[in-house]
Each structure stands twice: as C-alpha cells, then as structure tokens.
Amino acid sequence: MSEPAPPVAELTLRRRLPPRLPRRRGDVYVNMKTDFKAQLSRCQKLLGPGGGCTEICIHGLGLAINRAINIALQLQAGGAGALRLAANTSTVELADVLEAQSDEDGHPPLARARNNSAIHIRVCRVSPPP
C-alpha cells in the first residue's frame, strides 16, 4: 500500500496495520474483504450448538463498523430473542509513516498517529443452554 505523496518531497506514505489484540476463540474481526455471508455464518457457527462459545465479540474498525453492526443485528434477528447485544465504541490509534525516497532529505521517517473509530459488539446468549 503505497501512495505517492506530493512531489515536492519524495516521500511515501505507508500505513501500518492496526494493532491487534490476542485472539480468543470468540473474537471475530470483521473486514471489508471477506464476503458478508461468510462472516455472518462464521458467527452463527460459533454461537451454534457445536461452536462452543456462549458469547462472541465482533470487532469492526473504520469502514467495517457498519458491517459489524449489520452482522450483529442479523444474528439477533435470526436468534429468535435468545441473543443479547452489548455495543461498545472505542478509538484506535493507527500509525502512518512517511518514508523518505531519497537520501538527501535528512529527516528520519516521519511517523504520526491517526485515530480511527472502532466498535466492539458482544453477542451473548440470554439463557445458557441446559
């Protein structure tokens, strides 16, 4: 992912990946690349009888917030009242780095933090299965 910067200074903007937390079984990170249906069915499987999770956490960042909400609502609608949602928002710090393309401009790579919104939705069964 490199995008040309203004030609005055030969710099390349490099966006680093967002920091990730260690994953448990019930953590689902939603992205815009994977098919929506696939992500939904993955959540359903996790919550379903063989999935082994009583609750899952759906994380969405930036553009994927909408999709995360959508998945959570679809899960709830399909769950016939057995699921409860708890949404939580946060801000994630992302790092952007401007890398010099030539030797002359002496400054070290400029890094700056950029904030982006994120959502974390916990989906839980109301009554655990007997």
């Binding site: 937390l21 939580n88 994630v92 974390h120 916990r122």
Partner: peptide
C-alpha cells in the same frame, strides 16, 4: 495497557 477497549460495555 492496550486492552482497555473491550471492557466497559459489559452489562
């Protein structure tokens, strides 16, 4: 330090 994000909304 970074784990703060997930914790508050728990009912």
């Amino acid at each position: 330090g970074k784990y703060s994000c997930c914790k508050e909304g728990i009912c």
